[in-house]
Design a binder for these strands. Sequence first.
DNA 1: CGATTAATTGACAAAACTCAATACGAGTGG
DNA 2: CCACTCGTATTGAGTTTTGTCAATTAATCG
Lengths: 230, 230
Amino acid sequence: MLQKGDIDTIPTRGALASPSATGNALAETIGLMGAAMDFERGSEIFAEDDPAEYIYMVVSGCVRSSKLMSDGRRQIDAFYLPGDLFGLDAEEAHSFSAESIGRSRVVVVKRSALLARAMHDQEVMQQLWTQTAAYLQRAQSQMLLLGRKNCQERVATFLLDMSARLRSAGTIELPMSRQDIADYLGLTIETVSRTFTQLERDGVISMPVSRRIVLRDRPVLDELNDCWVA
Amino acid sequence: MLQKGDIDTIPTRGALASPSATGNALAETIGLMGAAMDFERGSEIFAEDDPAEYIYMVVSGCVRSSKLMSDGRRQIDAFYLPGDLFGLDAEEAHSFSAESIGRSRVVVVKRSALLARAMHDQEVMQQLWTQTAAYLQRAQSQMLLLGRKNCQERVATFLLDMSARLRSAGTIELPMSRQDIADYLGLTIETVSRTFTQLERDGVISMPVSRRIVLRDRPVLDELNDCWVA
DNA sequence: CGATTAATTGACAAAACTCAATACGAGTGG
DNA sequence: CCACTCGTATTGAGTTTTGTCAATTAATCG
């Protein structure tokens, strides 16, 4: 599915917009080995069941990965922000699809090349594991959210997580639509919208515009979030 | 948390009750390096936030891993069956707890020892990654289930998954309680019970006793399950 | 066999969903 | 600069699904 973006053959040393807390050796290696590609708003980076030929790192923008059911129901597993790796399947085929939200730039490296590298660079191999384990941990938190939290708690957890990952000081600029948030939180767009409105009425957040969220009362959000550690 | 079981210092070569499809080199290594421990019904193997000192492999019985909220709501991330590894956190502390369902035997190996081994056995390191990625993939399917499936679909998916993992020819002997199933599927015990009853009335399954489920109409279960591949 | 835990069932309540209408906001062209 | 348009977001009314609480019934273990 690499046809959709333009390959930028210029090496991407230092191309990372925000040097996220990603496993450094691995991110470094990918940055050096990979090619930068640009994706348009909404374009598909890979599809479910596509051969897992590449491993990806977000440079700028935001990527969503999701699974679809045959009747169109969608669950977004994760949003990837600058510095995040994705496509880390160990299987031959991807078990989910990935699309660019808005415009984004992504560094792409051949799985086979990275694995070859990992085979004689122990640290790269280990970080491949560490990164994957970190995503597994996130997935476990998300299962708690999806299985057991109510809509206020889901939204609070989401906002605190985005705030931490975007390193925002109280104001979050959301890169994704309400529909994406709904599909990530296992809710409908209407419920997400109503929950935002309710939190604003209660003075917990404010929304100058719908994609800009100001966290006004963190203690309440933390309370709703229960077991989160920022 | 290792006090609860009895350490069996006899090496566990060939101790695996059912030689599951686990990454072989890794399972082999753990079997050879590890010590067998027995756990009583309901006993805790490790708790959330415990230091992640060991990595585990189920020999017999069944283990559940879960997360708790402060008010007692529980989400079970996974059930581990013979041959399955667990405790594969890359972090220093476990992000979930693990308890034995019924009696079980587990092989335990020091994380540090296994990592040391992995550092000069490339295959072990890679399988550590592969295993973790496989669990991440399972987690992604579970997120789709928890976020988007209705109770019938959840139960159908659960039954097909258990049937495949237990290699059962149509009859499943469930090792876990309805409460455990409910906490795994993000439902209440009553909803799980009613759904089983409904499926039995519809002739899709039968339940000679509550823990023994006979799959009578796989096509219907597959239909409910949507996108599963056995 | 009896005690105790696990599972089922029923009646009702609540949370989230659906469908439909309306409002907002970014981008475009007059 | 304003009006128009189109995709996105919000709001309302009513329904559905699942949850809650309480009462039974079934299964398991001494």
